[in-house]
């Protein structure tokens, strides 16, 4: 999958990128505002002394978010510059912004999917079984050598079970299937 240089983006991609950034920015601001308000509501049921510091923070957060949202509404053009791929640094190894997302959409979705898969597997099976299975499956799916995949899976299980569990006596969490969270 080739990387699309940001200055080669089509105008439609650029506009799409700006619109996407603008939309997500609104959502993030609103989430922070809602968290601030929710914490203020939850503060009502707490004893006074425990609430002094959280009051100070939540009020500040609500104030700053409101100012930020108002500023965005008033100066749309200024804020749009932040989402414009053309105004971003072309540094590939740093935070690359929406242009990168557009150029790698498929790869990103697959990677996000694998990430969520390993999390879900860990919740159900616990790291001891989920992690070796995930590594084995991922290596096979990425068309790596199957012997390497099998050895990696077994090796990881040995490390988690014997090195962490038996030798270092770490109580590795177990998944729902084996009574985790009970």
């Amino acid at each position: 999958m080739a990387i699309t240089p940001e200055n080669n983006l089509q105008p439609v991609d650029r506009n799409q990128s700006i619109a996407f950034g603008r939309r997500v920015d609104w959502i993030v601001s609103m989430i922070i505002l809602i968290i601030g308000i929710a914490f203020i509501i939850m503060l009502q049921s707490l004893p006074g002394r425990a609430t002094i510091f959280p009051w100070f923070i939540t009020i500040s957060i609500v104030f700053i978010t409101a100012t930020y949202v108002y500023g965005k509404y008033r100066n749309k053009a200024v804020w749009d510059e932040l989402y414009d791929p053309d105004t971003k640094d072309g540094d590939e190894m740093a935070d690359t912004g929406p242009a990168f997302v557009l150029a790698h959409r498929r790869g990103v979705l697959i990677s996000l999917g694998s990430f969520l898969l390993v999390v879900a597997m860990t919740m159900v099976l616990g790291p001891e079984y989920a992690v070796p299975l995930f590594v084995f499956g991922s290596l096979l799916a990425r068309k790596e050598n199957w012997i390497l995949a099998v050895l990696s899976g077994i090796g990881l299980w040995v490390i988690i079970h014997f090195v962490f569990g038996d030798m270092m006596r770490i109580n590795v969490p177990v998944g729902f299937l084996f009574g985790g969270f009970n």
Partner: peptide, 23 residues
């Protein structure tokens, strides 16, 4: 990637040794 992600999941699970860490 699979190995680094595996190390991250194991590391996260070691925080309080609970599935809450993974969440």
């Amino acid at each position: 990637v699979p190995f680094i992600l595996a190390a991250m999941v194991i590391g996260a699970g070691f925080s309080r040794l609970s599935l809450g860490d993974i969440a």
